[in-house]
Amino acid sequence: MWGIVLLISIVLTATFIKRAFSLAVYFHWLEYLLVTFCFLGMNTWLFNFYLAGYPSLGLTEKYLPFAIVTVHFVIMYPLTFLWVVALFRTKKSFAVRYGWLITSFMTR
Protein backbone atom coordinates (compact mmCIF):
# COMPACT_ATOMS: atom_id res chain seq x y z
CA MET A 1 0.00 0.00 0.00
CA TRP A 2 2.70 2.50 1.08
CA GLY A 3 4.80 1.41 -1.91
CA ILE A 4 2.03 2.36 -4.35
CA VAL A 5 1.56 5.73 -2.66
CA LEU A 6 5.32 6.34 -2.87
CA LEU A 7 5.38 5.40 -6.55
CA ILE A 8 2.46 7.74 -7.33
CA SER A 9 4.17 10.50 -5.32
CA ILE A 10 7.43 10.11 -7.24
CA VAL A 11 5.62 10.18 -10.60
CA LEU A 12 3.64 13.26 -9.51
CA THR A 13 6.80 15.00 -8.30
CA ALA A 14 8.61 14.24 -11.55
CA THR A 15 5.66 15.78 -13.43
CA PHE A 16 5.76 18.81 -11.12
CA ILE A 17 9.49 19.29 -11.70
CA LYS A 18 9.03 19.01 -15.48
CA ARG A 19 6.15 21.51 -15.42
CA ALA A 20 8.07 23.83 -13.10
CA PHE A 21 10.76 24.20 -15.78
CA SER A 22 8.16 25.67 -18.12
CA LEU A 23 7.66 28.53 -15.61
CA ALA A 24 11.26 29.65 -16.14
CA VAL A 25 10.15 31.80 -19.09
CA TYR A 26 8.55 34.29 -16.68
CA PHE A 27 11.81 34.95 -14.83
CA HIS A 28 15.43 35.78 -15.43
CA TRP A 29 17.29 32.47 -15.11
CA LEU A 30 19.18 33.51 -11.96
CA GLU A 31 16.02 34.96 -10.42
CA TYR A 32 14.25 31.66 -11.14
CA LEU A 33 17.03 29.73 -9.40
CA LEU A 34 16.95 32.07 -6.40
CA VAL A 35 13.17 31.81 -6.02
CA THR A 36 13.23 28.01 -6.36
CA PHE A 37 16.04 27.52 -3.83
CA CYS A 38 14.40 29.97 -1.46
CA PHE A 39 11.07 28.12 -1.46
CA LEU A 40 12.67 24.70 -1.25
CA GLY A 41 15.02 25.75 1.54
CA MET A 42 12.56 27.63 3.72
CA ASN A 43 9.82 25.01 3.39
CA THR A 44 12.13 22.13 4.14
CA TRP A 45 13.67 23.79 7.16
CA LEU A 46 10.32 24.87 8.57
CA PHE A 47 8.81 21.43 8.01
CA ASN A 48 11.83 19.86 9.68
CA PHE A 49 11.46 22.23 12.62
CA TYR A 50 7.70 21.63 12.85
CA LEU A 51 8.18 17.88 12.81
CA ALA A 52 10.84 18.14 15.51
CA GLY A 53 8.51 20.15 17.74
CA TYR A 54 5.44 17.99 17.15
CA PRO A 55 6.45 14.35 17.36
CA SER A 56 2.74 13.45 17.03
CA LEU A 57 3.53 12.92 13.34
CA GLY A 58 4.82 9.47 14.31
CA LEU A 59 3.99 8.43 10.76
CA THR A 60 7.51 9.33 9.74
CA GLU A 61 9.18 6.77 12.02
CA LYS A 62 8.99 4.03 9.38
CA TYR A 63 11.03 4.11 6.19
CA LEU A 64 8.31 4.02 3.51
CA PRO A 65 6.01 6.67 5.06
CA PHE A 66 9.12 8.76 5.75
CA ALA A 67 10.07 8.57 2.06
CA ILE A 68 6.53 9.63 1.08
CA VAL A 69 6.58 12.56 3.52
CA THR A 70 10.01 13.59 2.19
CA VAL A 71 8.87 13.57 -1.43
CA HIS A 72 5.70 15.52 -0.59
CA PHE A 73 6.84 18.11 1.93
CA VAL A 74 10.44 18.59 0.92
CA ILE A 75 10.19 18.58 -2.88
CA MET A 76 6.67 18.64 -4.26
CA TYR A 77 4.79 21.16 -2.08
CA PRO A 78 7.55 23.81 -2.00
CA LEU A 79 7.64 23.68 -5.81
CA THR A 80 3.94 24.61 -6.01
CA PHE A 81 4.90 28.08 -4.73
CA LEU A 82 6.55 28.67 -8.10
CA TRP A 83 3.11 28.71 -9.73
CA VAL A 84 1.96 31.32 -7.23
CA VAL A 85 5.00 33.52 -7.92
CA ALA A 86 4.46 33.08 -11.66
CA LEU A 87 0.87 34.32 -11.18
CA PHE A 88 2.23 37.45 -9.51
CA ARG A 89 4.78 37.86 -12.30
CA THR A 90 2.17 37.49 -15.06
CA LYS A 91 -0.04 39.99 -13.19
CA LYS A 92 -3.12 37.82 -12.92
CA SER A 93 -6.09 39.32 -11.10
CA PHE A 94 -5.85 40.12 -7.40
CA ALA A 95 -8.27 37.32 -6.46
CA VAL A 96 -6.35 34.69 -8.43
CA ARG A 97 -2.93 35.71 -7.06
CA TYR A 98 -3.92 35.93 -3.40
CA GLY A 99 -6.39 33.06 -3.67
CA TRP A 100 -3.59 30.71 -4.73
CA LEU A 101 -1.20 32.22 -2.21
CA ILE A 102 -3.57 31.60 0.71
CA THR A 103 -4.48 28.13 -0.61
CA SER A 104 -0.80 27.26 -0.83
CA PHE A 105 -0.20 28.28 2.77
CA MET A 106 -3.29 26.44 3.98
CA THR A 107 -2.31 23.17 2.36
CA ARG A 108 1.08 23.13 4.06
Partner: peptide
Protein backbone atom coordinates in the same frame (compact mmCIF):
# COMPACT_ATOMS: atom_id res chain seq x y z
CA UNK B 1 25.65 39.20 -4.98
CA UNK B 2 22.91 37.24 -6.77
CA UNK B 3 25.37 34.44 -7.51
CA UNK B 4 26.46 34.23 -3.87
CA UNK B 5 22.87 34.41 -2.71
CA UNK B 6 21.90 31.54 -5.04
CA UNK B 7 24.75 29.48 -3.58
CA UNK B 8 23.70 30.26 -0.01
CA UNK B 9 20.02 29.50 -0.68
CA UNK B 10 20.92 26.25 -2.40
CA UNK B 11 22.90 25.28 0.69
CA UNK B 12 20.03 26.23 3.01
CA UNK B 13 17.95 23.70 1.07
CA UNK B 14 20.69 21.10 0.89
CA UNK B 15 21.44 21.39 4.63
CA UNK B 16 17.78 21.19 5.60
CA UNK B 17 17.19 18.24 3.28
CA UNK B 18 20.19 16.25 4.53
CA UNK B 19 19.46 17.13 8.19
CA UNK B 20 15.89 16.01 7.62
CA UNK B 21 16.98 12.69 6.12
CA UNK B 22 19.96 11.90 8.37
CA UNK B 23 19.11 13.40 11.76
CA UNK B 24 15.40 12.59 12.14
CA UNK B 25 13.66 9.28 12.67
CA UNK B 26 13.76 6.61 11.26
CA UNK B 27 17.39 7.14 10.17
Amino acid sequence: TAEGLALILFNVYFTSLLEFILATKPV
